[in-house]
Design a protein around this nucleic acid. Structure first.
Lengths: 143, 143
DNA sequence: ATCGATGCAAAGGGTTTGCAGGAGC
DNA sequence: GCTCCTGCAAACCCTTTGCATCGAT
């Protein structure tokens, strides 16, 4: 039905990566910001210093970085993926109004898993905890 | 940046809904299944009995039902939204391989919220807890 | 010299929308 | 009969991809 990821059971042929300036820039930007940018936000930001960077390159490298486990994708709002360089277990809060994404500290990720009673036969590879609502800043603006 | 939801602070003009056979069918199907169908899956299913149903109608009604709070949207995998008629707090597990979405009982949703230390100034309207991995069925198939 | 990475632009694919005709009330 | 709703198809928009060229090793 959907064409899901076609990963072989964890032993992909893995062609070797070559070094690339663009990939470095993208990863460094993700490390430096806490705004959880979308591909387009990354593109717009880096393009200032690098006018002929292409959006396709941003997408390709974000996917590579994700496969390498250096970046994670937060499925957010309105069909736009947002990216985060920090891969530790933590949750997010999205504001429905301004789209801002905030990090949340998860006190006990293991407890979170357990509290959801995941079937032991299902293998969990990741968890994504997302809260939505109106952030303090927007609430003030709306008064 | 994104064109977020344009909801007035909770008192939208709200034009009155008229009854519609299509909307009933869609909602009833969502109530009857536990497979968390995408818009397209709803469309394909209902089209068997109703050959000139249109996909646009399915999307429009899913959005209406969501606004009415009768249906919730689970942001899932690969940019496909999936829908669920049950609006109680519960979590989901998506299989990366077959795309199946399973319901999880959340033992204590309030504890879940608290364990993530959401800023008190941010107003939470919903939460979405999603686990991903390989479901038992696919693990067997891959052996 | 090889082969991965890039830029560009076109194609994909899920979702939304404009419009004319049809259905609820 | 006034509006909302529907079907159809085109438009949208984020993301992916084909291709010729560039660049890392």
């Amino acid at each position: 039905m959907d064409k899901m990821m076609e990963k072989m059971p964890d032993k992909a042929p893995e062609k070797k990566l070559r070094h690339s300036r663009q990939r470095d820039m993208i990863y460094e930007y993700l490390l430096s910001t806490r705004e959880h940018p979308s591909a387009d936000m990354v593109y717009e930001h880096l393009r200032e210093a690098n006018p002929n960077l292409s959006l396709g390159t941003v997408y390709r490298n974000l996917k590579l970085l994700e496969d390498m486990g250096k970046v994670r994708r937060i499925t957010s709002l309105n069909h736009v993926e947002r990216y985060d360089a920090c891969c530790a277990d933590h949750a997010h809060f999205v504001c429905e109004e301004c789209g801002r994404v905030k990090d949340l500290v998860v006190l006990d990720a293991q407890a979170g898993r357990e509290s959801c009673r995941v079937d032991e036969a299902d293998e969990i590879r990741w968890m994504n905890v997302l809260f939505g609502g109106i952030c303090a800043e927007c609430a003030v603006k709306n008064n």
